[in-house]
Computed example of a mutant assay.
Amino acid sequence: MSIMFFLVFAVSSQIRKMACMNWVLTLLVIEGQILAIGLLVVKTNMLRLLIGFLVALILIVMSSLMAIFIPFDLTKYATMLFLVDFFLLVFCIYTITYLLILHLSWPFFLYAFIIVMLVLPIVMYHVQSVMGNGQERTGLKDDKLSALLLFHDFLALYMLTFYWRPTK
């Protein structure tokens, strides 16, 4: 439900302009995502949770700083960025196939690396569009949408923590 609310929120600019609906949908999306992750937290070791949180946080902060200081405008080449990300996603599906069918543990690390390489350029794209220095700019009315996009980018990296199951 949370993803559906986020999709409606992201697509409908009229809803984002309504102050009350803007806040309500933002809170519903965040709360729904946190509750869904809470179900996965119960099954995960606390040390892995902390390590995953710190790694995801460091990756987000480093990619945000890179996006701020690089002179290259990623927002100008959004189509190319999403095309490369699509091919990386297809490659991720093949690595999951190796993981599930062949019962190997090493493809998970390849999968995690590819997911990180898929998400970090998107984080940089979102940071540059929020900063407004590039071709694409996020408007002042879209502050909550920008926050939700970066929140979901963080979750995409943090979710890898819950599926890391080293073999015995």
Rank of each mutant, 00 (worst) to 15 (best):
G134C: 05
L140A: 11
T79G: 03
D142M: 01
L145R: 00
R137M: 12
L140S: 11
K144M: 12
A36D: 14
T79Y: 03
A19M: 10
R48D: 14
N133G: 08
H126W: 07
V84L: 09
G32I: 09
F53A: 14
S129I: 01
F9D: 04
V61Q: 09
L89D: 07
T95A: 14
L40I: 13
L74G: 00
F69M: 07
D143P: 00
F9I: 01
Q14T: 09
A67I: 10
L39C: 13
M131N: 06
T95D: 08
V90N: 04
F108L: 04
L74I: 10
D142I: 04
Y94W: 01
Y77F: 13
L140F: 15
E136V: 07
T44F: 10
I60R: 10
I101V: 14
L89F: 12
D73F: 00
C20T: 13
E136H: 09
G32Y: 06
Y111D: 05
T97V: 13
V42Q: 12
Y125D: 00
Y125S: 09
I115K: 02
T138M: 00
L28T: 08
F72M: 02
V55R: 06
L65Y: 12
L27Y: 04
V41K: 09
F113W: 09
I60K: 11
F86V: 13
F91Q: 02
V29H: 05
S105Q: 13
I37C: 12
S63G: 08
L54T: 03
L89P: 03
V8P: 08
M117N: 05
L65H: 08
M21R: 05
I96G: 06
F82T: 05
L74Q: 02
R16D: 00
M131V: 13
N45E: 14
K76A: 02
L110P: 00
F108E: 11
T138D: 00
L47E: 15
L110Q: 02
I114G: 01
Y125T: 07
F72R: 04
S63F: 14
G52M: 10
P121N: 01
V116E: 04
Q135S: 03
L89S: 09
T95I: 08
I93T: 05
L7T: 11
T95M: 10
C92E: 07
L88Y: 02
V84T: 09
L120F: 11
L65A: 07
F53V: 06
L110A: 04
V41G: 13
R48S: 14
V119N: 04
A19T: 04
Y77N: 11
F86S: 10
S64Y: 06
L28K: 03
Y77S: 13
Y98C: 15
S63I: 14
F87I: 12
F82D: 01
L65G: 14
T138A: 07
V123G: 01
V90F: 00
V41N: 10
Q128Y: 06
K141N: 14
D142S: 02
V24H: 09
L140G: 08
G139K: 06
V24T: 11
G38M: 08
L74F: 04
I114Q: 03
